[in-house]
Design a protein around this nucleic acid. Structure first.
Lengths: 337, 337
DNA sequence: TTGTACGCGTTATCAT
DNA sequence: ATGATAACGCGTACAA
């Protein structure tokens, strides 16, 4: 009766509604789950690695996911795998005890055992991050790193920077290679290609600093000693695009140490738009996590769209322009909060 | 039979176990919840403010909480309040539909409506963060900011720093005032008290930089220009304790801009031990989130301990010593990863 | 249009 | 020691 109000007399409906209000009645989730044979919840594996790699991204994603799920009458159940190298038992438990109807995958990687296992057990899932192992799997959403970096390069070029280098992760990581390819593509298109203007580093700060320092030297940047009077510019504008906020922090540090100001002296754009980017006022590529969450939940609810067998969905990140990509000439005020 | 194996004949038990294995039987969580009239889950409100203020702390806390809950056979159900200023309806919904048996509160604040509401409705809860409004409530765990900062000051004094300033948040926030009191206490105890050696700032970087610069001037620190040859030390060692990693980032920037090296030239210790502290190699006060989570879950499971009516539990943070609090003389190697 | 009865999967109680 | 049964709260199919 509650679930099909149109089949009931108006006055009885009103009477029932009144009682519901009066008693504060809410259906019991457990009883609903039992009857409907579905939990009304999606599992989300929390692995410290994921939080680490994604920086402050995953917590925002969790909020979006939680909010979106609530709008669709579901919950998110976070869980951890005892051994993050062997995540399957944890998934199996949740499925077997029917705590989760399906899963949201994050931190997808090469040789990820989860998609195959979930397919084999006919457990619904949707991934934030491409499913790299099987192009036939389309149940994912990801952020288009290449087009993001491409846009960053074009933005820098628009701002007048001409010598645009790239500070990325060592080759081999799918995400890193994807992002780098955007730099290659855009600099080539713009006639600014210099394949040697790149450096790689892990996420560790000392390594990032070393890599950034080397890259800046390559790009022909004068050290602090060479510019005592701080003249406007010392040649064609130099800029760096970084594959992550952590790398950008290293580059930022080197700039500050050399007495250079991000933006004015060297352009800097990074990926992920975490707290760090905001704190340092760095231009950054912001991932549309709300739309990712929406899409993931949609995939979960409906299954991969059979009309769209082409593949998963690639969402472009949005470039948030801050002072680190504004040359002196282009800005009105400086360092105002 | 499963739940009281001692009341069953050994051979039948074995037979049943074998079938359980063979069939892969797992009790349905929904049916259990229905029968036992408890959800087996604890609600956790996710508000962007909390994630913001706590920095990268809350995501780690969530992992600890999730892991700990799993060990006790429960789950964590994250949820968001549509209007974070009016969180109660969201709590009410979860209670009414019996999705959560109780709640973990974070981001407790003055005039927090949640504890009173939960008490009134006899809903179990435990807070990470003191319940400021009612000293009679003991269902909380918190990190002892005062003793943490106290320890940081003593550590700096041990390392030979003598002029120890404090960079904190504006007065009025309970957490900030608590941390500051540790500085007051320790400097007084050590005979190093200089109430004027403090500055306040919000979490924003420009503000933090301004405050840090002013504080350093007060502490009598020479600028870069005054120490061209970089002599070992230019007077009694200067150090700053910061109320957060964000403030420390501001202080760090000012130091680097002035050509000073954290630790060698100016001691620096901060609170929270987020990625930033680790990245910049800053000594930091690490919150024992695993123990906080343990205790919160314990409180939830047993209710506030009636034998311990004194109040909640205050856990001391652990000082992680990195290069930013090691004067040149005390260190063996520098800047090694 | 309204009422009733069954069953979802467990657990606990009660006879056997 | 074991097997049968009721009830947890809801949704739905079917009867009235």
């Amino acid at each position: 009766m509650i679930n099909s109000p149109e089949r009931v007399a108006p006055d009885t409906l009103a009477r029932v509604q009144a009682e519901i209000e009066r008693l504060g009645f809410r259906p019991s989730r457990a009883a609903q789950s039992l009857k409907q044979e579905r939990a009304g919840a999606w599992g989300l594996e929390l692995n410290s690695a994921g939080f680490g790699r994604l920086g402050a991204i995953l917590d925002t994603f969790l909020i979006e996911l939680t909010t979106g799920a609530a709008e669709r009458g579901s919950h998110v159940v976070p869980f951890t795998a005892a051994d993050s190298a062997e995540p399957l038992p944890a998934y199996e438990r949740l499925v077997a005890s029917r705590v989760a109807d399906g899963f949201v995958l994050t931190d997808t990687r090469r040789d990820d055992p989860r998609p195959a296992w979930l397919e084999a057990h006919r457990v619904p899932y949707a991934a934030f991050g491409r499913v790299w192992d099987d192009p036939g799997i389309t149940s994912w959403v990801d952020v288009d790193g290449a087009s993001g970096v491409d846009a960053a390069v074009r933005h820098l070029a628009d701002q007048g920077y001409e010598r645009i280098g790239y500070l990325g992760w060592p080759e081999g990581s799918p995400v890193g290679d994807d992002r780098r390819s955007g730099w290659v593509r855009a600099t080539t298109d713009l006639g600014l290609a210099h394949p040697e203007w790149q450096a790689t580093s892990t996420q560790s700060l000392p390594a990032a600093c070393r890599a950034a320092a080397g890259l800046l030297d390559q790009l022909g940047l004068p050290g602090r000693s060479a510019r005592p009077g701080r003249p406007g510019r010392s040649g064609p504008g130099v800029a760096i695009v970084c594959a992550s906020d952590a790398l950008a922090l290293g580059a930022w540090r080197v700039l500050v140490e050399r007495g250079l100001e991000p933006g004015v002296d060297v352009g800097l754009v990074c990926f992920d738009d975490t707290d760090i980017a905001e704190a340092l006022d760095l231009s950054s590529l912001h991932q549309p996590l709300d739309r990712v969450a929406e899409r993931v939940l949609h995939l979960l609810a409906t299954g991969p769209d059979s009309r769209d067998p082409a593949g998963g969905l690639l969402l472009p990140p949005e470039l948030v322009v801050r002072s680190s990509s504004k040359p002196a000439g282009n800005r009105t005020t400086r360092k105002e909060k």
